[in-house]
């Protein structure tokens, strides 16, 4: 099963490679990895998606926690309700006959055209992975020249108390 983990790590050089090395060294899957600074400049926030059975996920979380640089690990998927987002930039072929269609599609999916050239549109799409996949599928027949994706970032929703 797919799990999204939120990891707070000390903002030290090498922290990223410790985590990447842990996954490769122990043969765990890593599907995507996003790193960015937090409000506290001494900490970085990593979101990573991985997959495996319960024992493997438990082992991944324990192994992450064992790293001296790791401050906190949260299995967002286990925590209950959460939101996750990914962004993609897609450079699609935009010939005279398809330009209008692309724009219509952008409208439906609430994408943005962020760059235009005589033969291409560059589309920015944000959303859960499923939405991005859908946009890519629709643009494929028209012709995709290039894709850049951010990987998933996620956050637990605030727990409501009764």
């Amino acid at each position: 099963m797919k799990h999204t983990l939120s990891v707070l790590v000390e903002n030290n050089p090498g922290a990223l490679s410790r985590i990447a090395g842990l996954f490769s060294g122990r043969g765990f899957n890593i599907e995507s990895l996003c790193v960015a600074a937090t409000l506290d400049p001494t900490l970085s926030h990593m979101t990573l998606t991985t997959s495996g059975d319960d024992l493997i996920i438990e082992q991944i979380i324990k192994q992450l926690n064992r790293l001296v640089d790791v401050y906190k690990v949260v299995d967002v998927t286990e925590e209950g309700a959460y939101v996750e987002r990914e962004m993609a930039l897609i450079k699609a072929k935009a010939e005279a006959e398809t330009r209008a269609e692309i724009l219509r599609m952008c409208d439906i999916f609430r994408c943005k055209v962020v760059d235009v050239s005589p033969k291409t549109y560059t589309v920015e799409v944000t959303g859960p992975k499923t939405k991005i996949d859908a946009v890519i599928e629709l643009l494929k027949p028209i012709g995709i020249k290039e894709i850049a994706k951010t990987g998933v970032i996620a956050m637990s929703r605030e727990k409501k108390s009764l």
Partner: peptide, 12 residues
Amino acid sequence: GITRPCTKHNYL
């Protein structure tokens, strides 16, 4: 880099 996977922790 070399000893990252075989030390408990390391520092430069």
